[in-house]
Design a protein around this nucleic acid. Structure first.
Lengths: 263, 263
DNA sequence: ACGAAACTCAGTATACCGTTCGGAGTTAAC
DNA sequence: GTTAACTCCGAACGGTATACTGAGTTTCGT
């Protein structure tokens, strides 16, 4: 019933796999692979060729194995993706162990989250479908909630606060563009100052510059006076300011709530 | 050179299409379709069958046309997606025309954004690849920037504020799961109170409930005490949706900045 | 007025993808 | 020793995007 390969719904299969309820017999030849090696290979493929290129065929090829063999270990692609997502949570530092008060911890959590997302953009692509929580993800979430120990926040508020920060970080990561490591939207004014200095974010890639020029050639920015002003000031539409700006606004807002709750 | 069908890079093709620099000859038979009708059909497909089901074949079938015919209008799938994304921006209300002060406008903007994303989840799926700005998107962005007219915010800060709110809304929309309309993380304690009451978000769908049960069967929640506590506190002291919670924290933070800028 | 260039459009081909099926070989259980 | 369970994999099915070819249609240049 909890056998991941025979369970009825794909959801149950994914859960059984994630939580290690793998009840298979002992007959037959020894297995040449392990689940961990498959997940590792899948992550490597996604890492170096992009999330779209992550196919069972490529994973199998990287493991020198036939495609069909993978189905002995994993029921299908969706389940493999769930395993990949939970696997990245292994490397995350547990937030409640960070030094400082809640704000320092939450800041570090957000930066860690941001770094992780910039390093492994494929997480954002996979994250949409079938978000099935695994043990590592839940452990991380549990730790994140403990950040607010001692503040007067209610349990629901703690959960919402974590969710909000996570939503912001992931949303920004997605706006920044996951795939070709883009940084900015075109300015067209030629003033594309780079004021993004957080680690892992390089600005002004080849693609970006090219697009900037093409856009500037086609668009009459006089039709967008406010936008023109913002661009002239060195900003860029969908990614101009550093990640830290939004994060600090968000933390300021949370801090107000904390102060209100514990006088 | 700006012909979308012969331009060298896919980026230039997309831009030329979006900005209407379609310089095609006048010979040959009359075209049976228009670009707008194709985009409209594509959106309809994505709307009712999910973003993954949006294929050129289905769009062509819906228009009673061969697949190859579409390629005389659109260079490829990526360009069609860019057109779809810009098309949804047509319906958006222009933020600067909203009533009230900047905070009221920004609140309305976020709610409008949220509503749009809950209604058209496919936007989040497509939004990743090749974010090429179209005229409608830039018009909306220009309007959004004008929200902060009169505040002392710098141009870059205005841009960042919009970006931050947008990132939060989209990120949350993605965390919530675009496809099977899920609501919360499973509780497993049986206390899965539904505290999501904004229009368009029904909580506790069939899938969610099923997953909750399966998860509760497999997971020992004693290993996650903080999480258990948060889940047990299903009754929410905060009167509002999780979306509004995060939004108000964010707006509080922005308000602090505004106050600091204009004394 | 008329040929030729330009254009639309469908069918076909290629190259991927996830998944299933059936068979061959291997091992543990009985 | 027989049998049942298990691993592995080639082949195939139905799906996708896209390229290419070729036939038919319309309008321009003369």
């Amino acid at each position: 019933m909890t056998d991941p390969l025979t369970a009825s719904t794909p959801l149950e299969r994914a859960l059984a796999l994630l939580w290690g309820r793998d009840t298979r017999g002992s007959r037959g030849p020894a297995r040449g692979l392990t689940l961990d090696r498959i997940v590792e290979a899948a992550i490597e493929v996604a890492e170096r060729e992009g999330p779209a290129a992550m196919s069972l065929r490529r994973v199998a090829a990287r493991l020198d194995v036939g495609v069909a063999s993978l189905y002995t270990y994993v029921p299908g692609r969706a389940e493999l993706e769930a395993l990949m997502l939970d696997a990245v949570a292994i490397g995350r530092t547990l937030p409640h162990e960070l030094p400082g008060d809640w704000r320092a911890k939450l800041t570090a959590l957000a930066h860690d989250d941001w770094r992780e997302i910039r390093r492994h953009p494929w997480v954002l692509e996979l994250g949409a479908a079938e978000q099935v929580p695994g043990p590592n993800m839940l452990r991380w979430l549990d730790s994140a909630l403990r950040i607010f120990d001692g503040t007067g926040l209610s349990e629901t508020e703690k959960l919402s606060a974590i969710e909000t920060v996570d939503a912001y970080v992931r949303g920004l990561g997605r706006l920044r563009g996951p795939e070709p490591r883009r940084a900015d939207i075109a300015s067209g004014t030629g003033s594309e100052a780079d004021h993004d200095h957080d680690p892992g974010a390089e600005a002004g890639s080849e693609d970006t510059r090219e697009r900037d020029q093409a856009l500037g050639r086609l668009v009459d920015f006089d039709r967008y006076p406010a936008l023109r002003r913002a661009l002239a000031a060195g900003g860029t539409p969908y990614s101009g300011t550093p990640f830290e700006f939004g994060l600090e606004r968000l933390l300021d807002g949370i801090e107000q709530l904390v102060l209100r709750r514990s006088p």
